[in-house]
Amino acid sequence: MRTDGRLWVNELLLDRQIFDVDGEPVGKVDDLEFTVPDDGGPPVLTAFISDTAALGPRIGGRLGAWWLAIGRRFQARADRDPYRVPTALVEDVDRTEVRLTVPRYRLSRWR
């Protein structure tokens, strides 16, 4: 790990376990959501995506495409967001886990 405060997503974020304020498992960091601010400027990290279907593109190839397609069909409503964990609710991140400031049922969609 570099020591100057810069970090790469692979060593800090991706595939880390997310725990809620009570230490209950919420999910993995399967993907990251960036938002382009209204006034322009570079994209900002706004949420962790924790959704089994979101793994599809990371698996890659035909299997990944199937994964995504099948995973989407399992979702109750197609227009729903994947399971988002807004970065505003994150208490702390280290190399081994992500901890939240709220219990898991307070998140936008609890399955």
Binding site: N10, L14, D15, Q17, R58, I59, T96
Partner: peptide, 20 residues
Amino acid sequence: IARRPVFHVVRERLGVRTGL
């Protein structure tokens, strides 16, 4: 100590594809 079961670390260490 780490309060982790083994397959947590398999995913963290080997990544999505190899882990799968």
